[in-house]
Every structure is written in structure tokens, then in C-alpha cells.
Design a protein around this nucleic acid. Sequence first.
DNA 1: GTAAGGTAGATGCATCTGCATGTATGTGGG
DNA 2: CCCACATACATGCAGATGCATCTACCTTAC
Lengths: 151, 151
Amino acid sequence: MANETKNEAKRPSAETTEAWIGLMRARERVLARIEADFKAAGLPPLGWYDVLWELAQAEGGRLRPFEIEARTLLAQYNLSRLIDRLVKEGLVRREAFDADGRGQWVVITEAGRTMRERMWQTYGPSIEAHVGARLTEAEARQLAALLAKLR
Amino acid sequence: MANETKNEAKRPSAETTEAWIGLMRARERVLARIEADFKAAGLPPLGWYDVLWELAQAEGGRLRPFEIEARTLLAQYNLSRLIDRLVKEGLVRREAFDADGRGQWVVITEAGRTMRERMWQTYGPSIEAHVGARLTEAEARQLAALLAKLR
DNA sequence: GTAAGGTAGATGCATCTGCATGTATGTGGG
DNA sequence: CCCACATACATGCAGATGCATCTACCTTAC
């Protein structure tokens, strides 16, 4: 190692700190507005959307729980119980995965596809209102590119 | 996420949608990394930091709960209970607010100031590592500016 | 003064989350 | 085959959150 005298902890620049705080605050604010729209429309929690969307996209409308986990960043134990709730609402069903006794399929039902579409009817305009309307197209593209660097 | 155009409601552009998803995912990822650092350092929840910081900044090290609420975006009922926890840990104390019998002061203690500093010793480098190191200074400034438009 | 309505903050309850661990099944080395 | 270890998913429990509501106090209009 080069001549680093002291392992003094590196501190963030003002720009970095403001970017981080801005990230927390912006997502907080926008999320609150979108959730308010969801609530006003009598829709289930926003978090359900991601799972339904991933399933609707997937071939055969089915994925293994660990695949959903990777796509959505949900924690394993949270996903397990979220699936329970979706099953209870009839939006997905569990099916055996024959090639591996530990595994299972999560399959979206017709009701699940319908619900996802119904949610998008609120979600889409809500994203447009609370994000799109505040940014030009170039800015949105730029923002997405910058955020992608944080992953 | 694909652009869906089905009825009259205004739909977000692909750029807008990607910005929104990027916002959710980026904060998710970065937050998980920072919280892992906190946990590794045996520190209390990250959320405590904001309250302690606001109090440490404030004149006399004291604020009214509703002032903390406005500064941190915490919900009233969450803040009420968060203060309970901070009191229990001896990091803040409640004091009567004489000019209004409904109100109270929340005052940071010496232990609270010490804890905030100790948290920053982890938090600062963590922000630098997970945000600063991934962006140039110009990018960080740009990101902060774009995020500010969403509030 | 007093009734009506507003604001500050707390709290009961149901739900959700994090954490640790449990159960069941798979896999690889000897 | 057997044992150790890994992977897929579930779950008990404690703590956190959202929601609605409650109490207490304040302000205004009359």
C-alpha cells in the first residue's frame, strides 16, 4: 500500500451529502403523493404492483420466489408474507415446482392481471403528475442516468 | 417498464418512469448499504440521526415536536413514539413549553450530542463510499438539483 | 363567558417489518 | 451410502408503522 499515513475516515463533500439527502427526501415526498393517490382510488399497497408487474411480464405469468426477490429487492421474509397476502386476495397462486422440492412457482391469476391493470390506471398518471410534470424529458433522462450510477 | 397507453388518462413517458423507478431503486440500494454499515458499527437506527441532527443544530438544542416533524418529514405519530425511544435512551429529554400548555420542548442531551457525533463517524464515510465515490462532484451537484425539483 | 372549531401531541389496534431460526430439500466429498 | 453444508422458503417474536381517534389546550366569534 502507498504511503497512507492515517486511516482517517473520508468524509463526504457538501455536494455528495446534498445528493443523498435529496434522494431520501425526494423519494419520500413523491412516494407519499403517489400513495395518497392510491389510497384515494381504494387500491392495495403500492408494493403489490411490482410483484404483479414482474409476474405479468414473466413467461407463463410465473416466477420462483427467489426470482421475484432479485427483481424487486424485497427481503426474502417480506416477500414470503407478501405472497401470502396476494394469495389470500386471489391475485396469485402457488404451484409446486417439480424439479426441486424446495421450490415453488408463484403464478399470477386473471384477477391478478386485472388488478395490475387497474393499479396502473392510477399509478401511471400519478407518476406523470408527481415526477413527469416537474421535469423536462431531458431532465428525466439525466436523472435516471445519474441514479443508475448509484446501483 | 413499458409505456402503456390505453385510455384518456395521461401516461408517463418512458424517461419519467425510469426516473421514478431509478429513484426508488437507488435509494433502496444505497440505504441498505448504509444501514449495513450502521449495523456493523452497532449503531441505533439511521432514522434517529435526523432528529438528533436537527436538535443539535437548533438554538438551545431544542425544538418543538411539530418543528421536527416539518424538518424531517416524519409523521406526527411516528415522531411521538420516536421521541419516546430517544428519551428512553437518554439522548433527548422532554421539557414543558410554558407559552402553550399543549406544547413541549424536545431537548438534546449531552449523550445525544455525543451519539450524533458517533453516528456521523460512520454515516459520513458511508455516504462518501456509497454515493460520493460513484459520482463526480459535478454529477452530485446536478443530481441534487434535479431531485430538488421533485419536492 | 361560552360554544365552536383549530392545533399539539398521545395512544389503541391492526398490520407490517427485521431478525433469527426452523424445516425441508438438494449437492458434493469421502 | 453418509455426512456436512448449501439453498428455498416459512415463521415466532419483538419492535415499528399507519390509521383513526382521543385528550388537552388554545383562539375566535358572539
